[in-house]
Structures are given as structure tokens and as C-alpha cells.
Computed example of a mutant assay.
Amino acid sequence: MSNVPMTVSGEAALRKELDQLKKVDRPRITQAIAEAREHGDLKENAEYHAAREQQSFNEGRIMEIESKLSNAQVIDVTKIPYSGKVIFGTTVDLINVESEATVTYRIVGDDEADVKQNLISVSSPIARALIGKEEGDVVVVKAPGGDVEYEIDRVQHI
């Protein structure tokens, strides 16, 4: 499997979630299964089946996170010499050429992406258009509603 790019904060968040799943959720679910077993007949025991389903989801998520962390390529952008170019982990201020609206995005790994917090995936169309460009460059982003032109106003390595 290939390396998964991830920011330092993204790795920390996944490790925190993994810790929660293993140390808090797993014992709670195991206890719920034990309590449901005490109620007798397992065929018609909704509590037992619900707890087993929770256990399945929890264990699946644990395996998924462990896999991602084992393949993670953690990139600390603050340790990369500033070149002025847009790279993974940078924060970019954009100006829509047509409407002159401004927006700020940080380019992060796929698991960290959250458009509501202006965190965009490195594999998104906007990020792919921005990577390697510099302040003052105009990029064309192929969006579902048509091409959108943005001017790169500022690039920050935060």
C-alpha cells in the first residue's frame, strides 16, 4: 500500500481517536455484550445484537486507523524550507477572479479534509490545481459548475 500524506495534527487526531476506541469504547462494548448475554436467549435479544454490531464497527474503525497510521507519511510543513510555492500543508489565500470573493484553504491529507473548516484534501481538484504554484499565479479549477479562476493572494507555511 502507498504512503498516505498526513499533517502532524492529523496524525495526532487519529492517534487520539484510536486511543478512545481501544481504551474507552472497546471495554464499554464488551461490558454491554456481557450484560446482554445474562438476559438469556441470544436469538431474540436485541441488546445483544446491537452491542455486537457496535463491536463490529468499533473493531473495523480500529483496523482502519491502524492501517492508515502504519502507512502514514507525516509531513511537518514548518520543517520544510519556505519556497513560496504551494505544497502539502500550506495555507493559501485565494481570490475568485470573477467575483473577487476571497477564501482561505489549508491543504491536508484525505482523512483530515473538512471543507467547513477550510481544510481541503491534497487530492481535491482545487489542491491539485494549486500545488506548485506561487503567489500572484492564476489557476483554473475544474469544478462541477464549470471552470473557476482563482488568483493566489498569499501562501503561508504555518
Rank of each mutant, 00 (worst) to 15 (best):
N3Y: 14
N3A: 13
N3D: 08
N3V: 04
V4F: 05
P5I: 10
M6D: 03
M6I: 12
T7A: 14
V8E: 06
V8L: 13
G10C: 04
A12G: 13
A13V: 14
A13F: 07
R15L: 11
R15E: 09
R15D: 03
E17K: 10
D19N: 11
L21N: 10
L21W: 10
K22E: 09
K23F: 09
K23H: 09
V24D: 06
P27K: 07
T30Y: 01
A32N: 04
I33K: 11
A34D: 03
A34N: 06
E35I: 11
A36C: 10
A36F: 09
E38D: 10
D41M: 08
D41Y: 07
L42H: 06
A46L: 14
A46E: 12
Y48R: 11
Y48E: 09
Y48V: 13
H49C: 13
R52D: 05
N58E: 13
E59S: 11
R61W: 13
I62C: 15
M63G: 14
E64H: 07
I65C: 02
I65G: 02
S67H: 12
S67N: 06
S67L: 02
S67T: 02
K68S: 08
K68W: 02
K68Q: 11
L69C: 09
S70K: 14
N71C: 14
V74L: 00
I75T: 08
D76G: 01
V77Q: 01
T78P: 00
T78L: 10
P81R: 01
Y82T: 00
S83D: 09
G84H: 11
K85T: 15
K85H: 12
G89K: 03
T91Q: 07
D93R: 07
D93P: 00
L94F: 02
L94M: 01
I95C: 11
E98F: 00
S99L: 02
A101C: 09
Y105I: 10
I107L: 13
I107C: 07
G109P: 04
D110L: 05
D110V: 10
E112R: 06
E112H: 06
E112L: 07
V115G: 08
Q117M: 11
N118H: 13
L119M: 04
S121A: 03
S123E: 00
S124R: 02
I126S: 12
A127V: 11
A127D: 00
R128E: 00
A129R: 05
A129V: 01
I131A: 00
G132Y: 00
G132M: 00
G136W: 14
V138K: 05
K142W: 00
G146P: 14
D147F: 02
D147G: 01
E149P: 01
Y150H: 14
Y150F: 15
Y150I: 03
E151F: 05
E151V: 12
Q156K: 09
Q156C: 04
